[in-house]
Design a protein around this nucleic acid. Structure first.
Lengths: 168, 168
DNA sequence: TTGGAATGTCAACAAGGCTGACGTAAACTG
DNA sequence: CAGTTTACGTCAGCCTTGTTGACATTCCAA
């Protein structure tokens, strides 16, 4: 906030006032609740939670990923992830295969049941995202993505970009 | 871009593909981590967590709010909120005053210490938001807010708007 | 071949959600 | 005025999901 509010720089900086920033913060808070609400409802009845959803999502996204790789994507401790993974494996939603070249590694895959649940969850989440995108229009969507990307930690930005390129 | 309603094939709907939606979902996930990272770091050393931050934020935002009102903003149970509030009051960051007109109500205020912590937390969070906003530019910011608002549940949208008008 | 680094598992604990039950005081209503 | 409803607090207990610590296995390099 070095530059003035009086237009010295020639730029309109009204969108950087504290009030605007606070509205952005609150929008982020309320929107994230909506963002997770639908999958949460689906998972509520089945002894799973948001952590399971995240694991399932990224295993589906990068089949054969190692536990370590998943760890760095999710940003939790390996113990935390392991607990989630254990139940998913026990319930037959995820398969864990010992690595061929490096036998310390476990490669993770969704089973058919796992893929089915992933579909249900992401259908619900995408439906909301689609409605929001459609209401807002393509330009707003572009801005949405630009700001979100700028809000990530540098490392997460790289992870996000890598995934994006992997995808399609 | 304003020429939309002229038929499905006439519209550019590329921003609504499943791939685009999935990128939006992942952007939301990674960005929210960044969004909470700085306050989380500050709170880590002091026996408080994200729940305390949220309470402090909204009490600061609407001083004199009742417990019930705060409850509906935060979307948690009173038991959950009460646990947080109890420690904040015990530590002298929040003051709870019996209502004048309705003595069943408790009105919540930040103390000087509470305001000081609120400042530290929101400074950190705003700094990140400001950097992201500046990098992205005013049009992207407008789009960002439009999409987030469309992603909220209807009720949260109302709460958000009410707060926005209260603020400035 | 041996010690260290990397990968993953098990155990225990804490934060912060949740439900249910209950108590109290104040406000409202027939 | 009596009975009901509302607002708030609290106790007890459960679940998910984060944490650290201890440990086994595997790989690799000195």
């Amino acid at each position: 906030m070095s530059e003035s509010r009086s237009g010295i720089s020639g730029e309109n900086l009204l969108f950087l006032t504290d009030e605007q920033l606070r509205q952005g913060i609150e929008a982020m808070f309320f929107a994230y609740r909506g963002f997770t609400a639908d999958p949460d409802r689906i998972l509520a009845g089945m002894a799973y939670g948001r952590a399971h959803h995240r694991a399932i999502h990224f295993i589906n996204r990068a089949p054969g990923t190692t536990v370590n790789n998943l760890l760095s994507i999710l940003g939790v401790t390996k113990q935390s992830l392991n607990r989630v993974l254990r139940t998913l494996i026990a319930d037959g939603l995820v398969e864990s295969r010992v690595g061929q070249s490096d036998k310390r590694e476990r490669h993770l895959y969704l089973t058919d049941d796992g893929r089915a649940l992933e579909q249900r969850l992401s259908d619900a989440q995408r439906a909301r995202m689609r409605a929001a995108f459609r209401d807002a229009g393509p330009e707003a969507v572009a801005g949405f993505r630009t700001v979100l990307e700028a809000m990530m930690d540098a490392e997460m930005q790289r992870t996000y970009t890598r995934l994006k390129e992997t995808g399609g």
